[in-house]
Amino acid sequence: MEDYILFQPSVKPIHKEDEEDFWFLFKDNQLMVYEGKGNITIPRQKDVLDLNISIYNIQCMGAYSGYNCQCGEFVDHIEEENISFMDLRTLSEFVDENIYLMASKANLLLNWLKLNQHCGICGSKMYIKDSKYERAMVCSNCGNTTWPRTSPAIIVAITKEDKLLLARNRQFPNRRYSVIAGFVEYGETFEECVKREVYEEVGIKVKNIKYFGSQPWPYPNSMMIGFTAEYLDGEIKVDGEEIVDADWFTKEEVQGMYKKSISIGSQLIEWFLEKH
């Protein structure tokens, strides 16, 4: 099982408690990590016990590679030189994808817990449901129950012969471009969202929409669903609000226009570079 599914989600510990169990701990929305010999590592239970800190909002995430995974938050001051704090975007540059995805899950769970302290119906205090199989918050007054939710968004690489469509969001640094992305509306299929977002942002129509892959995106609680598509019709006309520039670029031009990372946006661009 562990060779086939490295991470097993669970609301209760799967394995016997071990000093090598993983702890994903956040302080001021930044993840605590250990730095040593050029590597970034996640604290284990033996490390956390040595720190003697008070952890709150503790949640079991499941198990990874035979060890339990817990997450939580703390406010204590730590002075050890080999301890650092990183936001998740920075973390993604130093760890493998599995560790990054687990850190993302920890962040998502903690955000869900903090955002559901009070009932959305009656305003009463919520509590974590005591269950082996179900992760939920229940209202202490009316019984309203809420579960962790994620907001789906599409991201798509659009090709036109030997060129790739890249766009620059208003919030991007100068000369930094990426592929088109946007949130899925209620009652909308992923493919419909691809068509709509592309047309709204750059004014063109696409065809041959094909699934590429997916990736949790904890900024703050999204799931990115990746696609590839081909140009069908129209001339590029940016919306001028979210997108300030867009154009077709050759393989040679794309080089250096994006930041390589483990993000699915980067993977889509690299797919184009390998294909052409």
Rank of each mutant, 00 (worst) to 15 (best):
C71S: 12
F272S: 05
K260A: 11
A229P: 10
E20T: 12
A157H: 08
Y219I: 08
Q45W: 02
V238Q: 07
S214F: 10
C71E: 06
W112R: 02
G66V: 00
N169I: 07
E35Q: 14
Q117E: 13
S214N: 14
N107E: 11
N39K: 15
R170K: 15
Y186P: 14
K163L: 08
E2Q: 10
V95C: 01
H15W: 13
N52Y: 06
E197R: 10
K259A: 08
V95W: 03
Q45L: 07
G62F: 01
L115R: 09
Y133Q: 13
K37G: 03
G143T: 02
E185I: 01
G62W: 01
V238C: 15
T150V: 09
K125Q: 14
L166S: 08
D47Q: 13
A229H: 05
G256Q: 11
G38Y: 04
E80F: 10
Q59I: 14
C139P: 11
D87I: 00
L88Q: 03
L108Y: 10
N208S: 14
S84A: 13
V156F: 05
E191N: 06
M1W: 09
V194K: 07
R170S: 15
S178F: 15
M32H: 08
I243T: 03
I158K: 07
L91C: 03
K195H: 08
Q117P: 02
Y67G: 02
I225E: 04
L113P: 00
Q255R: 14
N141H: 14
K160A: 06
I55H: 11
A167S: 15
V11W: 04
E73P: 01
L49P: 00
E20G: 14
L113K: 11
A229F: 05
F24G: 04
I78A: 06
I154C: 09
S104I: 10
I42C: 05
L51W: 12
N174D: 15
Q45P: 10
A246F: 02
R196V: 06
P9Y: 03
V33C: 13
D28I: 06
G62D: 03
N82R: 09
S214H: 12
F85G: 09
P216Y: 11
V194C: 15
K251N: 08
M86D: 00
M126R: 05
S214V: 07
A106Y: 05
L166Y: 02
N144M: 05
W217N: 12
Q8V: 15
E80L: 13
P13C: 03
K114P: 00
V179K: 01
Y177M: 12
M102L: 15
T145Q: 12
L101P: 00
S104V: 07
H15I: 06
M86S: 03
V254W: 11
L31M: 09
V179E: 03
V48F: 03
G203A: 15
N221T: 06
K125D: 13
K12I: 07
S178H: 14
N169A: 15
E97P: 04
V156A: 12
V33A: 07
Y133I: 13
K195G: 05
Y4P: 04
I262D: 01
E2G: 15
L51I: 02
K259L: 12
V33S: 01
V11S: 09
L6F: 11
G187L: 04
S54G: 13
H118M: 07
L6H: 10
